[in-house]
Write a protein that binds this DNA or RNA. Sequence first.
DNA 1: GCATTTAGTTTACGCGCGTAAATTTTTTAT
DNA 2: ATAAAAAATTTACGCGCGTAAACTAAATGC
Lengths: 343, 343
Amino acid sequence: MALKQIRNMEEFAAVSGISRPTLSKYFNDPDSVRRSTRERIELALTQYDYRPNVYAVNQNRRKTRNIGVVVPNLADPFFSEIGREVELACIAAGYSPILLSSHGNPTQERDNLELLRSLKPAGVLLAPFGRISDRDDIASFNKHIPVVLFDANIEDACEAFVGTNNFQSIDLMVEYLCRSGEPPCLFEMKSPTNPNANKRRQAYLESMQRHGFQPHIFQAEGDGWNFEEIGSAEGGRFISQNAFATNTVLCSNDRLAIGVLSAAYRLGKKVGRGPDCALRIAGHDDHPFSRFTCPSLTTIAQDYSAIANRAASTLFRVLDTDERPAERAETLFNGNLVMRDSA
Amino acid sequence: MALKQIRNMEEFAAVSGISRPTLSKYFNDPDSVRRSTRERIELALTQYDYRPNVYAVNQNRRKTRNIGVVVPNLADPFFSEIGREVELACIAAGYSPILLSSHGNPTQERDNLELLRSLKPAGVLLAPFGRISDRDDIASFNKHIPVVLFDANIEDACEAFVGTNNFQSIDLMVEYLCRSGEPPCLFEMKSPTNPNANKRRQAYLESMQRHGFQPHIFQAEGDGWNFEEIGSAEGGRFISQNAFATNTVLCSNDRLAIGVLSAAYRLGKKVGRGPDCALRIAGHDDHPFSRFTCPSLTTIAQDYSAIANRAASTLFRVLDTDERPAERAETLFNGNLVMRDSA
DNA sequence: GCATTTAGTTTACGCGCGTAAATTTTTTAT
DNA sequence: ATAAAAAATTTACGCGCGTAAACTAAATGC
């Protein structure tokens, strides 16, 4: 087995009988060498435990084969899932993904970009917080390295954006709710960290107007990422004060909705479509747990697989052509209504 | 500002007026140079945008300042949280953490170790699946690189283990449940992926015996990490068949409990301590969502902050002394009972 | 079978930094 | 002030690999 410990490509060239430059070509692209040569190399690889020193490999190359993937918060299952999809897409394309979480903290996002700067990635897939304060950092980063945004858009920044069409998805939900019962009011954060929330509010207003109903917006005080907590506290407050304008509450995202559902349960208000129900509650995002809330949550499923793969392939195209695209593309995927028991 | 683009340490030496070897010392340990020199360097750093090329830095060094952190599944909030704590501990100690998720897949765990092998980390903090099949891979990996296990133990493998004392935590819960109502039966996976589940079963049996009650174990069919789904389907089956031996169900972990709670709701069985309740349900782990289940979940909180920090500091000690510890240490932290409304 | 194309070999240099040895400068102790 | 200690500088080499140039061997086309 381990006939001899191979220390570097030179030694591997000696034992495999292939010259070092050819080996170098092989490791950069196995298909760039003749098949017979490739087989000889791969035979030798089974006999000797050698693999190129990543640090030496990346030292000279201006662009590595690394791709940075930055998401706002891996503790949020949505980003955990979409991050995973992006990783897989990168691996499939022969890149090495480096998944970084900003842990709900814009400062950490800057730190992550700073870290990536020194890792010289070929490109970056970034789901930004989208606050104005980040804009300059991201633009400055983008000067040197191609960046494709996903999930949250920053107007006119970076090579492209891929996300969900909130206007379509919210309209879909509003339409359903209006058709099946009282028109919904909207429950959201007062100062949302995510620009999608603003899009959704806008979409709600337009959609309600289109359907000829009076919109009602209820905003929760609170900061940070404890959406369930905020939804539970503030939603509970609105419920117990009978403040919601209608019996139907559309929450800006599932995590808020999960909080509101827990508050409703605590307050003894039955949630659902039945005649004995006091409230209907809907969400947005199809959070993994929304199937297991009580009752299960009616929501919008984002097509995160499509988003992840499109974002990745958009970046790959930029990397392949090695030039910035003339036009900044914005791709929006439709959401799907997931009907469960809460609305 | 950017007076000149600095390309390497040589050029930075020229503009800063400090010799390259001294700069090298500084970047490896800022305190290894005289204070006045350090201040001159840091002044220059504010004027010029230079930082050492990570790849060149790590190329020669046998041991990098990287620390690999491998968890079974970042989509599971428990690992997301504890992974974060570990990251912070590494950064605080001057190391660069590389957080990798095995995505619920033992093969991926092997791939992650393979990846880490080429990144030459100083050490690794590993939360393993703990299946027997991984043992050899991990042991082989551990031959070259120090590894501290956390969360899940593998007997006699690696430098040390840090986790929760399941015997203490389960006993705490069993004691509470017996004292406050009917003695609990145990609900768990038939073929658990996590060795803690086996510990918890053992602990349950011993604890029930100690309290003089007959133990009852109910096992859910199913594979993978969809614990909520399995808990909901299988738990629902047991509930609707009235199969649980007592009205109190202790679930092996919170995610199963979340599934069982959703099944109970679906079946119209009220859960809680009150006289009108049909079931009491308890969990283990204090999952972030267990506060927002309906009703909120009584559970055991693992001290993951303590676990993460102890695991990290144990590894650092090994790295500092630069020799393997004579004795393999196992550190177990106690769990805390979190009383909520479900039991 | 021969010319042409394609692939591999030899040789050589450079990347950015760690680091050792010898020397000079600066600080500290007496 | 002077000797000793500490720190910085100069010089030089090596790490493992990418890569270019000139050359040689093998595969391909007709």
